[in-house]
């Protein structure tokens, strides 16, 4: 099981990895927090020591000034031969709600047709790719008739559904 500290670190790291704010990824009042599902998925699919190293590496990075953190995540996590593939699969999970099965072979890159598992139906409805498109998950609209006839709210609008 994950501790609160693990969740805090996971969300903080995920915010830097995805480009979405920590409050967007794990809203304070959420009936079905997808961050918890994703952390559990990560911990169930990846060697515990590796997950632990990734989160503790981030914990150290989180003590740096905010402007220096992305570069540190890049050099210490994404560029790490073991942590990098895991971190990239975490980004995929946030954007597409999928945990891809084979993600660490550089000769066999993950594509939109690779094998994997949709984390849950709840997760599907919260994929960040749809927010990046200023849209909604196909099959899950919270909008009303005719919204499509005008431009959507701006990408980083506080009203957007992320």
């Amino acid at each position: 099981m994950s501790s609160n500290q693990d969740l805090t670190d996971f969300v903080g790291l995920s915010a830097i990895l995805t480009g979405f704010g920590a409050d967007d990824l794990n809203p304070q009042f959420s009936p079905a927090p997808v961050a918890v599902e994703y952390l559990q998925t990560l911990q169930s699919k990846v060697d515990a020591a590796l997950v632990s190293r990734m989160l503790s590496t981030y914990q150290t990075i989180s003590g740096l000034p905010p402007a220096e953190q992305p570069a540190a995540v890049q050099s210490q996590i994404l560029a790490d031969p073991q942590l990098g593939p895991v971190a990239r699969n975490v980004i995929r999970m946030w954007y597409l709600s999928i945990w891809y099965t084979d993600y660490s072979d550089p000769n066999n890159p993950v594509t939109g047709f690779s094998d994997g598992t949709v984390v849950s139906s709840n997760a599907y409805t919260k994929g960040l790719a749809w927010d990046a498109a200023q849209a909604h998950p196909m099959g899950y609209s919270e909008m009303h008739y005719g919204y499509w006839a005008t431009e959507p709210p701006p990408l980083d609008s506080p009203d957007d559904n992320s």
Partner: peptide, 16 residues
């Protein structure tokens, strides 16, 4: 898409 391009961009090393 979006599955195709998301995977392509992440595979290229893009993040944040």
């Amino acid at each position: 898409d979006p599955w195709g391009s998301v995977n392509q961009f992440i595979g290229e090393g893009q993040f944040g």
